[in-house]
Amino acid sequence: MQSQHHMLPLVVNGVSYVANGKAIIEDVSFTIHDAGLTILLGPNGAGKSSLLKLCHGLWPLSSGSIRWGDADVQDVKQKQAMVFQRPVLLRRSAAENVDHVLKLRGASSAERARVIEESLQWAGLANIADMPARKLSGGEQQSLTIARAWALNPEVLLLDEPTANLDPAATRRVEDLIRSFAEAGKKVIMATHNIAQARRLADEVLFLNHGRLLEQAPAEQFMSGPSDPLAGRFIAGELVE
């Protein structure tokens, strides 16, 4: 799994994030060296989603620093794509949603047509290309946001609880897409509170609670016996606050 991925390592150093006087992320430091699929795991309100958005450069850091490879977090958005918990889809057809990001990247129209077709095909959405995106089912909508991310050919994909609102069939479909992203050599970082999902997908786990990073471990090691006692209770299925 060691890679030549030039966005890596991701180095998060002493990062805090304060909003409205409340500390959301407190002094978090970690390094991710490897490609593959990293899961940010923890109960709701642990700060997973905030940490993800900080790593994407969407929000300003209150303190600390984040670097992707040689670059500052603010300079790498173009090489990343992010998928949100509630799919943000434009009020247009599925194909036009993909087209939108390609146009922002300045792709030629021939190129755009090709990539739209490929990415919808890849996500199994070719048959609904002309449907209004917001009339699609929840699973199709989230698949479309991932297809849109795929169309950008990013080096890093960030996902924030992408299956939180989906039924099991749709979840399986979305997980397959995420897995195939990782298998294509992209770095994937995904936030989830679902321990079973983490078990299915993770190569590496970062366990967070109350805005603090409690443990970072390879998935197998984490699942078989985390060193943090709270993480232990969490994977045992207890309610952790």
Binding site: A81, M82, L104
Partner: peptide, 22 residues
Amino acid sequence: YDEYLRSVGAGTRQKIATLLWD
């Protein structure tokens, strides 16, 4: 749309065009 538009790196004019059209 805000986070999406910032995520994909839309500039002010592109944001206005997208929001007006949608």
